[in-house]
């Protein structure tokens, strides 16, 4: 990123650290998972950098964080068996439980 041309002016008035409630929730979830040592800071940065470049540039800052969290949790299989898409055996046909 350093030195790359073409990103235009810095929006110096672009102040709030969080521009939507969900951004703050992504940051909180990241902090909780870091405190739990679910992954390291290096792993998190690496996951952000592994987002394909075209997607990376199209995403906002916290969208990249969200994608990195999804990627790391999937790779480390930390959610295995707990996702809404995989649980609920007999209730799988129930529209409410399947959750779309």
């Amino acid at each position: 990123m350093g030195g790359q041309a073409g990103f235009g002016p810095v929006l110096a008035g672009d102040e709030p650290p969080f521009q939507a409630d969900w951004e703050m929730r992504v940051a909180a979830l990241t902090m909780a998972l870091r405190l739990r040592e679910a992954f390291t800071g290096d792993e998190f940065r690496d996951a952000i950098e592994r987002i394909p470049p075209a997607d990376y540039l199209a995403m906002s800052y916290y969208e990249r964080w969200l994608r990195a969290l999804e990627l790391l949790l999937a790779e480390k299989e930390l959610l295995a068996g707990h996702g809404p898409a995989t649980g609920h055996g007999a209730a799988a046909g129930d529209g409410e439980a399947a959750g779309g």
């Binding site: 350093g2 030195g3 290096d42 940065r45 690496d46 950098e49």
Partner: peptide, 9 residues
């Protein structure tokens, strides 16, 4: 290859 903190520039 892989993650590094040596900036390209």
């Amino acid at each position: 290859d892989g993650h590094t903190r040596l900036p390209r520039y």
